[in-house]
Design a protein around this nucleic acid. Structure first.
Lengths: 164, 164
DNA sequence: AGTGAAACGACCGTAGA
DNA sequence: TCTACGGTCGTTTCACT
């Protein structure tokens, strides 16, 4: 169930049919295997076997996603963090914050990038000052407040953590 | 089907039961309504009605997500873009690039943030120089290569575009 | 790996509290 | 908005290719 995480010994090669199946499920994760079969030219059983293989091998996952905007989280931002010491610890601390839904360690002029989802500016400001900048090792932060999301396509990486 | 996008006239208030249903579907988007009903203490029909309402109103979506690592896309990076002129046009151009899965217009020292998913450094470099930095209006870019994804939780924003 | 068929279980519409 | 129930369709298993 849980994916091992890291590095693919050898990348999984998908044929056109599997890609088509994934596309169907990207449009609607609950589409029936029978419908998908009709769309890609395969029997229901064959589709189901492929989907099972894709999910069990950890290549694909079918999940619910929610719209933060409609739930009242109207303020989003990316926070760039510069840190001293072990940046993994800083990242782990950031990941503990429920309002932060995305944390990645990076090479570049930031050590960590974190995306926050807040209800308003006040919550964002409080979060930044009270819970982000107070983490030991955090030297400075830079915030990029979202104005408009232009494109979003779902991938997932090596870790999939629920909020703590 | 398509969500209107933007600003919630009034945020949707979810009760504990709906939150529990969403949690079930975040763990497994194909879990049956009957199973979910057992978990949250509701009949199958009631669960189905709530899920239908959540999806039709655009609060929730059930989709397949894939793991770029396992598919051979081992290089990911966030690109910060500084641009002159209309940043919306730059964002639109970035969104046309298939390897870019995430584009957001921001207020801050970058005008646009874009996440790229590449197979290797060579592809990333070519992408940056040939297709990003060549976009009219792009003044400078800064790249943050991903070392480790620490946390990821799925939300979706105002736009959900498939690759062009 | 894929197909086909039969048993089972999930899903859907409707009726009623 | 929930439960109850019957009809329909999807899913599962298995034998076969």
């Amino acid at each position: 169930m849980t994916n091992t995480g890291r590095p693919p010994s050898r990348p999984v090669q998908l044929d056109e049919v599997s890609k088509a199946i994934i596309e169907q499920l990207q449009a609607d994760g609950r589409r029936s295997y029978a419908d998908i079969g009709k769309a890609v030219g395969l029997s229901e059983a064959a589709v189901r076997q492929r989907v099972q293989k894709l999910t069990e091998s950890g290549v694909m996952q079918i999940v619910a996603v929610t719209d933060p905007m409609q739930l009242g989280f109207t303020r989003q931002a990316m926070i760039g963090v510069r840190a001293s010491g072990d940046t993994r610890e800083v990242a782990a601390r950031l990941a503990e914050i429920p309002e932060i839904d995305y944390v990645v360690l990076t090479a570049g002029s930031f050590d960590v990038l974190a995306e926050v989802v807040c209800e308003d500016d006040a919550q964002l400001m409080a979060l930044l000052n009270e819970r982000v900048r107070s983490i030991p090792g955090v030297q400075s932060t830079e915030s990029f407040v979202y104005l408009k999301l232009q494109k979003q396509f779902y991938n997932w990486g090596t870790v999939r953590n629920r909020e703590p």
